[in-house]
């Protein structure tokens, strides 16, 4: 939109005013000291948050000999990508990666669909005993039976050593449902009513009105759900005791970090190539770092997209259902 001449003049005047206005406040020595300390603290802390990621990364792409001698600390040297390409050759890691990706995609998709649908259904006042069912749902956030009964229950339902154990229990997520419900309640009711008058059923209204309008909140819960799925490892640890082919990537990483025997097995199982490159025990360090990096990269890749949504999400979360 083109600005009118008056608006341009106003903007200029405002800028000029701001400039002179700012000059009126001189920084006192106390302000300067405070600013230096404050900036220093935050920049140092941010670097503390960033450096470990950077350190891991440069160690995975640098010359493995230098890495094992601890010579790569700040700048990468002898850059190569063979650590990553070799890791792909290990069927164990590849499988764990696929399991993690699979559970994240399927689990998140179903969770989002279910949350949107349940969120919509529980906003309908005419539902049979709505209050009771809504409480039946929400109250589950505040208690849990404990790890062992949960495990026994899962094994009773046949969900041990079974990929579905990652998916089915996560479909109904009360907290996310509350977020969606709160969001739907903020949508003007007339929209739905007019569609209802035109003879649309609940399903049609849900698909063509509620779903598109809820997209921002659904994106928010999708992101949290996906991160949760990607990061979770206790379910893999507890439920998949006899199914190593269903371990998640996080679980694999946990095993490699904790036990050298697992790592040795990996180095042998990886076929000729892996053995060739990673035969030295010292290279265990590189392998650990590379697997860590592989687990972190997906999070870092979606992080820029997440950022837009999570601030909104956390604020909505503060409004209770």
């Amino acid at each position: 939109m083109a600005k009118t001449a008056q608006e341009k003049l106003d903007a200029k005047a405002e800028k000029r005013y701001n400039k002179t206005h700012k000059r009126q406040y001189k920084l006192t020595p106390g302000d300067i000291v405070f600013n230096i300390l404050n900036y220093t603290f935050f920049i140092v802390f941010t670097l503390c948050c960033l450096f470990p990621f950077y350190y891991l990364f440069i160690n995975t792409i640098s010359d493995n000999n230098l890495v094992s001698r601890g010579m790569v600390n700040f700048i990468p040297r002898g850059i190569h990508l063979s650590n990553y390409t070799n890791l792909v050759k290990s069927s164990e890691i590849l499988q764990a990666f696929l399991v993690s990706i699979g559970r994240t995609l399927i689990g998140t998709a179903l969770m989002v669909l279910a949350s949107a649908f349940i969120g919509y259904v529980v906003t309908k006042q005419q539902m049979w005993h709505r209050k009771f069912w809504y409480r039946f749902l929400v109250i589950t956030m505040y208690f849990n039976a404990g790890t062992i009964p949960w495990y026994l229950n899962m094994s009773m339902l046949g969900l041990t050593n079974n990929f579905m154990a990652y998916i089915i229990p996560g479909i109904v997520a009360p907290y996310n449902i509350i977020l969606v419900k709160t969001y739907i309640e903020s949508i003007p009711g007339e929209l739905e009513e007019s569609a209802f008058m035109d003879g649309a059923g609940y399903m049609t209204i849900f698909r063509h009105i509620i779903w598109p309008l809820c997209k921002p909140i659904l994106a928010t819960i999708a992101i949290f759900g996906a991160v949760g799925h990607w990061n979770s490892f206790t379910d893999s640890l507890i439920l998949m005791q006899n199914a190593p082919q269903l371990y998640t990537l996080q679980h694999r990483l946990y095993l490699y970090l904790n036990t050298t025997t697992n790592l040795a097995a990996l180095m042998q199982s990886g076929g000729g190539n892996l053995e060739g490159v990673m035969q030295s025990a010292l290279n265990a360090k590189t392998i650990k770092y590379t697997i860590s990096m592989v687990s972190i990269i997906p999070i870092l890749l979606v992080y820029p997209f997440m950022q837009r949504y999570f601030e909104k999400g956390i604020m909505l979360g503060a409004v209770k259902g």
Binding site: F233, Y289, S292
Partner: peptide
Amino acid sequence: FTTIPNFISWVLVYAIAFA
């Protein structure tokens, strides 16, 4: 960048501690 660590799992935090 101070928010990033919240999104990695505790296993990865341990991996970082390890590094």
